[in-house]
């Protein structure tokens, strides 16, 4: 694959292209079309994907550290990808697979993660303000001191998740499954707890709106 044409911006439509193990680090790839492309093992660290299309792309095991990924990643495969320090604000990650991805120090504020697979993912201290996590699978995930202010978690699965010291103020937790979750010192003022399952959850020091239970 001739990556020179991509780097110089001549080649903008690469839907379905095979870019396995290619090096596109620190490249401006804004508005590029990579729908359904194969990017497994590619080096995309520090690249700029603003408004790019990566829907259905395979980014398994990719190096995407510090990239601007405010892009369409609908249904993308990001398993084991290193997304640390990347900018995913408002990104479309609906139905994406993020299992075993490295998400440390990412920003996911306002991201669309409904139906995404985030099982056992480490989201410790991550910015998830206002994120759409409806129906997402976050079972066993580490969300310690994560910022979930005004996040939409309706119908999400958070069983056995670690939400110690998390900020869940004004979050929507209607129908959320928090069985066995650790909510030690989490704050839930103004959260919607309609039909939330809290059996076996640790609620010590949790600040709850008792009215909403």
């Amino acid at each position: 694959m001739d990556t020179e044409a991509i780097r110089t911006g001549k080649q903008k439509n690469l839907a379905g292209a095979d870019l396995e193990d290619e090096d596109l680090s620190h490249t401006d790839l804004s508005r590029i079309i990579l729908s359904g492309a194969n990017l497994t093992g590619a080096n995309l660290s520090g690249a700029k994907f603003t408004a790019a299309r990566l829907d259905g792309a395979n980014l398994m095991g990719c190096q995407v550290k510090g990239a601007d990924l405010r892009a369409n990643l609908l249904g993308a495969n990001l398993m084991q990808a290193d997304l640390s320090e990347s900018d995913l604000r408002g990104a479309n990650l609906r139905g994406a697979n993020l299992m075993q991805a490295n998400l440390t120090l990412t920003s996911l504020a306002g991201a669309f993660l409904s139906g995404a697979n985030l099982m056992s993912v480490n989201l410790k201290g991550v910015d998830l303000r206002g994120a759409d996590l409806r129906g997402a699978n976050l079972s066993n995930a580490n969300l310690q001191s994560a910022n979930l202010f005004q996040a939409d978690l309706r119908g999400a699965i958070l069983s056995e998740a670690n939400l110690e010291e998390a900020d869940l103020r004004e979050a929507n937790l209607a129908g959320t499954n928090l069985t066995g979750a650790n909510l030690l010192c989490a704050e839930l003022i103004g959260a919607n707890l309609n039909g939330t399952t809290l059996s076996g959850a640790c609620l010590k020091g949790t600040i709850l709106d008792e009215n909403n239970l």
């Binding site: 910015d127 994560a146 998390a166 010192c185």
Partner: peptide, 17 residues
Amino acid sequence: LSIAVPKIAAGMWMLDS
């Protein structure tokens, strides 16, 4: 703009590399 007084025990998201 939502003006939220910070949750003091959960400020680590603002510290980064």
